[in-house]
Design a protein around this nucleic acid. Structure first.
Length: 764
DNA sequence: GAATTCTTTTACACAG
DNA sequence: CTGTGTAAAAGA
């Protein structure tokens, strides 16, 4: 057994079946080293439960028992099939085993001072294959042709097989395995579904056994999907997650693929230089993309603070929070949590009630301020000491000090619970790094490495703070406790409703509110003053609840010169800074077509920017866009529709357009996978159903009418109906605007045509 | 070695 | 033509 040196930073961890040790990898003078530790696995029981079952020697399985505060530890071998039986037996006795699913490597890390590297060595890589065998069903049979790779900031290199036979491929693999020896995390685009799968399968095929244990895999596409949030420019880039498309839209790369994927073998045979160039290019794009977006760096910070190595699993909230909470629990011995059990879904798990969303006052408003509660849910958690182990079940002890939440749940207040403690740690750390980032910005170091680190750490702590509520509310989570979850949401509901009511009492008009934000019609100064009053007023109530005052903070988030609402969660406004804030409108959604988005953007611009937006001006815009669509010359790019195939094709109950297109793709033997965007164009109607074709089968003839009535006009219509004071039926008549050319010559029936709003054609 | 939540709008398919 | 269920994608 090795001795750990203080300060050693580990890069990977695993369990060795033969020696029954937990092992960790680290670097020393550029050499990969390994420490192995003997360890005894255990889980917890509540002390009172232990007495009930008196199970100290279950068939000789548990060889040791140790007391740990209000818990006892039961030691037994993790990799023994009798473990499961034992756990079931405990449950049958009404005893809840705690943390009995925690992996030995994790357990060791939580109990010891194992440090995880803050700076894992990242290798971006991409493989090119001959995909003629196996198809998309069995990608493990795709033959490797070349592999391009580069570390962060390094020049991209490319290995190519000498021949497209077994020998060539095996040799290629061996060469690549020598490369990866020097890195910790391998990053590929869609790697979890493709590159990693192929790599492992091909290695197995040739009975090659690189040290997979020391290597972590990370899929950059998954990170992109998760973190590339709202598209500020509203360009709706997410039509396809292919690296090609993302590079085009995020990095502005113009180059189009000039190699068909199914012909890669020909390129390999006849133009190997081209294959190499092509292969390298994807790695360059990944490097550039990651440099710009900083996702792996941010993920490294988050994983690190949750005691996790940088890999795919470290982007799952449940896994991250486990890393933080269980380490905290092991140190403080304050609370241990239930065993996760994936197969028992039939327990009486209930959904929890969520937040309050106010009906907006539909229409256009001037001079509106948005007040936000900062970190509302984390703040409630701290103020009310919401934590599973602090919940008072049954009658509260007379002497016990407790806070009562809006759902009537009571939380003992004597000492701080594990969840509030962690959330407070997270919020404090976040505020520290946020200040640090602000300081660096002030000193003009906005683009420095230090600034990026500060920003990443600030974001990481924020993610952790916000994840804690989800962990109480998910039936799958170890920390699931709906009373705790609802203590937070319903208290939040009460708080926002109190503020809305208070505003009314002060004669301030509230135009909208959602969860933690309130939009009031007021000047900036008045809004700030009101926020201060509201905080004081709320604190009085917080104290009445027995909770901790001073934590619920209401701050001015934005001042809008103009803002309009069309529905709940749908609005657009122009801030005092001149910037727009568009939420929920089709403009910021990826499931419509670009033509509709651009049209809506035009109308939003008119409503937010024109000196006096009015119906006549709006009509001009509408007719211009209708006519252009009707001429039949709009590019495919603007008409392309796409939705994600969110699950397996068989599980769909309704055959929506994109499902139908996906089925056709499959029938043709093309690649179709879960999560894929299916791009198509509407070309007509078949009975009641819409008729659409895959973008590749599109011949340039779209159905203008279907686009106008179904996709293009309605998003604009909703804005017009909300903000322009003319009767609805008149805007509705525009839905049939295209038909006017054929049958409704004088649809608008305007007697006095002032000549401004003239349709291009006469209309017969 | 699976999984953060609820709330909301909108569009299409399908049935009557 | 209308009502209902399913699905996607958003807000927070």
């Amino acid at each position: 057994m090795a001795k750990r040196k203080a300060g050693t930073e580990y890069t990977a961890g695993w369990y060795d079946w033969e020696s029954r040790q937990v092992c960790f990898s680290y670097w020393k003078n550029g050499e990969r080293m390994q420490h192995s530790f003997n360890t005894k696995w255990y889980f917890f029981l509540r002390r009172e439960d232990a007495e009930i079952v008196a199970c100290r020697k279950f068939d000789g399985l548990c060889d040791e028992v140790e007391e740990a505060g209000p818990y006892i530890k039961l030691f037994l071998p993790y990799y023994d099939e009798r473990r499961e039986v034992f756990i079931e037996w405990l449950r049958s006795k009404g005893v809840e085993p705690l943390e009995a699913d925690v992996h030995p490597v994790d357990r060791y890390m939580f109990d010891s001072e194992i440090k995880i590297s803050t700076n894992p060595k990242i290798l971006y890589y991409d493989i090119e294959t001959d995909a003629r065998k196996g198809g998309w069903e069995d990608v493990g049979r795709h033959r490797l042709l070349s592999i391009a790779y580069a570390g962060r900031g390094e020049k991209v290199r490319c290995l190519i097989a000498d021949d497209s036979d077994d020998k060539g491929e095996k040799d290629l693999l061996n060469r690549f395995f020598n490369v990866i020896e020097k890195y910790d995390t391998l990053v590929a685009w869609n790697g979890a579904a493709y590159d990693e799968v192929v790599l492992r399968a091909r290695a197995k095929h040739y009975k090659l056994y690189p040290r997979w244990n020391t290597i972590n895999f990370l899929d950059l596409m998954q990170l992109f999907k998760k973190y590339y949030g709202r598209d500020e420019s509203g360009s709706g880039v997410r039509i396809s997650f292919s690296l090609e498309n993302i590079a085009k839209t995020v990095l502005g790369k113009g180059k189009v693929k000039d190699i068909a994927v199914h012909r890669l073998i020909d390129v390999f045979n006849f133009e190997p230089d081209k294959l190499i160039e092509y292969n390298k290019r994807d790695v360059e794009i990944m490097q550039e993309l990651d440099e710009k977006l900083g996702y792996t760096e941010a993920q490294t910070a988050l994983a690190h603070l949750c005691n996790r190595f940088l890999c795919d699993r470290s982007s799952k909230s449940g896994y991250l929070v486990d890393g933080f909470v269980l380490k905290h629990a092991a140190k403080s011995q304050t609370a241990h949590f239930r065993t996760k059990n994936y197969n028992e879904g039939q327990e009486e798990e209930r959904g929890i009630e969520g937040a309050f969303v106010m009906d907006p006052i539909i229409g256009l408003h001037e001079q509106v301020c948005d007040l936000d509660f900062s970190s509302l849910y984390p703040s409630i958690m701290i103020a009310w000491n919401v934590s599973p182990e602090k919940k008072i079940v049954g009658e509260a002890d007379q002497l016990e000090d407790y806070a009562i939440a809006a759902n009537k749940a009571k939380f003992s207040n004597m000492t701080s619970g594990s969840f509030p403690t962690i959330v407070k740690t997270a919020l404090d750390a976040r505020s520290h790094w946020k200040k640090e980032a602000a300081r660096l910005e002030k000193e003009g170091q906005e683009n420095s490495v230090e600034h990026r680190i500060a920003k990443n750490r600030s974001d990481a702590w924020k993610v952790l703070a916000n994840s804690m509520y989800g962990m109480l509310s998910s039936p799958f989570a170890r920390y699931y406790d709906p009373d705790c979850g609802e203590a937070i949401t319903i208290t939040g509901k009460t708080i926002i409703q109190k503020v809305i009511k208070l505003a009314g009492d002060y004669g301030i008009k509230v135009v909208y509110g959602d969860t933690d934000s309130v939009f009031i019609k007021s000047s900036k100064d008045q809004a700030i003053e009101f926020a201060g009053l509201a905080e004081k007023y709320l604190d009085e109530w917080v104290k009445e609840c027995g909770a901790l005052p001073g934590l619920i903070k209401l701050k001015l988030d934005a001042e809008f010169l103009r803002i309009f609402f069309t529905a709940k969660k749908r609005y657009a406004g122009k801030k005092a800074t001149g910037k727009w804030d568009v939420r929920g409108l089709e403009l910021v959604r990826s499931d419509g077509c670009k033509y509709a988005r651009e049209f809506q953007r035009k109308m939003v611009e008119y409503v937010l920017e024109a000196a006096h937006p009015n119906a006549e001006g709006a009509k001009e815009i509408v007719m211009k866009w209708a006519d252009e669509l009707d001429e039949g010359k709009v590019d495919a790019e603007f008409l392309l529709l796409a939705q994600s195939l969110s699950r397996s094709i068989e599980s769909y109950k309704v055959e929506t357009l994109h499902v139908r297109i996906a089925k056709e793709l499959m029938a043709k033997g093309k690649e179709v996978y879960v999560g894929m965007k299916i791009p198509y164009i509407v070309v007509g109607k078949e009975g009641a159903r819409l008729k659409a074709v895959h973008i590749d089968d599109y011949d340039g003839k779209y159905d203008a009418n279907q686009y106008w009535t179904g996709k293009v006009f309605p998003p604009v219509q909703r804005i017009l109906e909300a903000v322009l004071p003319i009767p609805n039926f008149e805007w509705k008549s525009f839905l049939k605007y295209l038909n006017r050319n054929k049958k409704q010559a004088n649809l608008f029936g305007r007697k006095k045509n002032d000549g401004k709003a003239d349709p291009k054609e006469s209309g017969e």
